[in-house]
Design a protein around this nucleic acid. Sequence first.
DNA 1: TTTATTAATGCAACAAAATTGCAATTAAAA
DNA 2: TTTTAATTGCAATTTTGTTGCATTAATAAA
Lengths: 127, 127
Amino acid sequence: MTIPRNTRAKERILEIILASDRALSQSDVFGQVDGLCDRVTVYRVLDRLVSEKKIHKIVNVDGIINYAGCSSCDTANLHQHDHLHFSCVRCKKLSCLENHHVNVTLPLGYAVQELFLTISGICPSCG
Amino acid sequence: MTIPRNTRAKERILEIILASDRALSQSDVFGQVDGLCDRVTVYRVLDRLVSEKKIHKIVNVDGIINYAGCSSCDTANLHQHDHLHFSCVRCKKLSCLENHHVNVTLPLGYAVQELFLTISGICPSCG
DNA sequence: TTTATTAATGCAACAAAATTGCAATTAAAA
DNA sequence: TTTTAATTGCAATTTTGTTGCATTAATAAA
Ligand SMILES: [Mn+2]
Ligand SMILES: [Mn+2]
Ligand SMILES: [Zn+2]
Ligand SMILES: [Zn+2]
């Protein structure tokens, strides 16, 4: 329980992620900070932004973790991520389909915490 | 298009994966082969087993790639993996819920290729 | 069974990705 | 302004995955 601070790097990184129309990986972000901070700082800031619930993680189909802003999900109390993600095999764009929620029902005994739903295929721009 | 051979390492690795009640990562597998073969061989055999459709990949919620046997999905012609996976945050077990399929509908313009569906939470044994 | 072919392996080197320790910096409270 | 400790940079380290190549061995052919 440390008190978070707003630093230049943190502000810039959040800005980059929110401005993007696609989810970004650590290296994508590092490529865009353009020398403002160290590579290690990017790792640390991303972790911080996730735990502060400003952004959320999306595991892409290749196992690479990407980050996107929390928009539909950033209601103070309920922080849910039950929306779909789409990963285009052609243009490689990974995007949140914010208003495509999925409700799954599991066998008895399972307690759901988070949903990780990513669909690969061809996106509208590439199709 | 090379003709695959059945080697000791390949047989043992497939055996390990099929005997497991959970999906295994490369390092899990390497831990279990107990010196039978090299680390590099595990990587190569896993790739081979995937392309031979004996096993399938599951990207866990942390981005780590795991492998599980193909059972419900190994029908000769149709090799689909549209079933759910469950990742227990307590015991870390990652398992296939073979008979829990999900049908999603996407906005117009998207062409679906593959589904990656993993739910995290507490599994029955841990709940 | 023996021989020939080439898939598969081991190993070392390499490359990429992520983590850690620690001194120096700096945001924010006092 | 002074104080506190969160944050950062940087080097070192660890972890993870890949590649080249000589050697081994599975399988088919003789
Ligand atoms: Mn999302
Ligand atoms: Mn599965
Ligand atoms: Zn596309
Ligand atoms: Zn469990």
